[in-house]
Design a binder for these strands. Structure first.
Lengths: 204, 204
DNA sequence: GGGTAAACGTACTGTAGGTACGTACATACC
DNA sequence: GGTATGTACGTACCTACAGTACGTTTACCC
């Protein structure tokens, strides 16, 4: 049994919560960074200076915690990607910037990335979908817009979004664990694939 | 406490094992198909007519069970893909066949696919890599060969393999859960993406 | 100042992974 | 043909963790 030192039961003085939801998520991130993706809820609560029921009150069960942290990471990645390609003309070099920004942001949130992409808990695979959809939604909107603008069928946007996110997820996992490539080099390789690498003709 | 009816402690008469490793994996698949990806080891053992320690003796812990089942599924997919594109000339239509065979085999092993791609257990994300590598290895060999044959750098093969597998994994998960597309239509959409869809020029 | 509701911690339950150990059978050796 | 040893089981336990019921302390309102 873990006991939080220096606190006792009862409503805290001052009419304020001991910790709010955002502070709890911050603490969760710290605990994950320190102990890896397998941290228990109790350890996270301890890191925040509270006990488990507080987490259930503010956030919910382990699945909802995963979702909240996933939304955070997705936000960071989307922000990073947007500022990376802002003002760039659509083309291969913008694609490289997009991919590199993804990789670098994931690398900067390494443990959190591991936690979100599968190391979290005893969850059904439907959760993976929910997590991915945090990234898919904004991407699909952009793709759909672009397809319409260029006179093509936007119906492919959703499938393409899941395809791109899935591609980046597994590739990033591999890269962070057992690859010596730089983010830039890997982004170039992926861009080559997406830029039609599979239909490259033989070099005469 | 679950008790297997009709058996008692002690070495079985007849000098034979009660069940061998393959039968255990068969039972695991049946249990997963029946109860979903969250089945407990004890339920799997019960399905096989034995108790937990037998699973640990034949297969190992939950991680090793995941790996074994993942290898089975990867084998089925690789087989299916090979026979789908056997004799086909390299090109876009072969790519569609490759993708469709992947999707259909996953659909035919729906629950097992869920179990393998994340619904399994309290595992570190490194396991996802190990699982994916079962599919990556043969694919990378083929890609590497093809790149060399066509006079290009084969160094991209590994990254491309993880990219393609990741793309198929997440797309399949989405498709099996919440998409009404046929396997063929989805394969066409993915092929369009891989065939350079991102650099499609505006239709004049 | 008393009553009510809020915000905690304490302590419990249930479940599942993993393991120590006892038991029954086979085989080898004398 | 009896005894020792090793093997293949099931039984019963330990531990860790997710999730929850409940008691306690404080703020707030009249």
């Amino acid at each position: 049994m873990v006991t939080v030192a220096g606190r006792r039961p009862g409503r805290p003085a001052g009419g304020k919560l001991v910790v709010d939801r955002e502070s709890l998520l911050d603490a969760a991130e710290r605990a994950i960074r320190r102990d890896g993706p397998m941290v228990s809820l109790e350890t996270i609560a301890l890191e925040a200076g509270v006990t488990k029921p507080v987490i259930y009150a503010r956030i919910g069960d382990r699945t909802e915690l995963s979702n909240a942290l996933s939304a955070r990471l997705a936000d960071r990645i989307v922000q990073s990607v947007f500022s990376a390609i802002a003002g760039q003309p659509i083309g291969r070099s913008a694609l490289v910037l997009f991919l590199a920004a993804n990789l670098e942001t994931a690398a900067g949130n390494r443990e959190l990335f591991f936690y979100v992409t599968g190391g979290s808990a005893d969850d059904s695979p439907q959760r993976s979908l929910l997590l991915a959809s945090n990234s898919v939604t904004p991407l699909a909107a952009q793709l759909s817009q672009w397809r319409t603008d260029t006179g093509h069928d936007p119906a492919v946007a959703e499938a393409w979004s899941y395809a791109l996110i899935g591609m980046l997820q597994l590739t990033t996992l591999w890269w962070l664990n057992q690859s010596a490539l730089t983010a830039r080099d890997l982004a170039e390789q992926l861009a080559e694939l997406l830029w039609g690498g599979l239909r490259t003709p033989p070099i005469a």
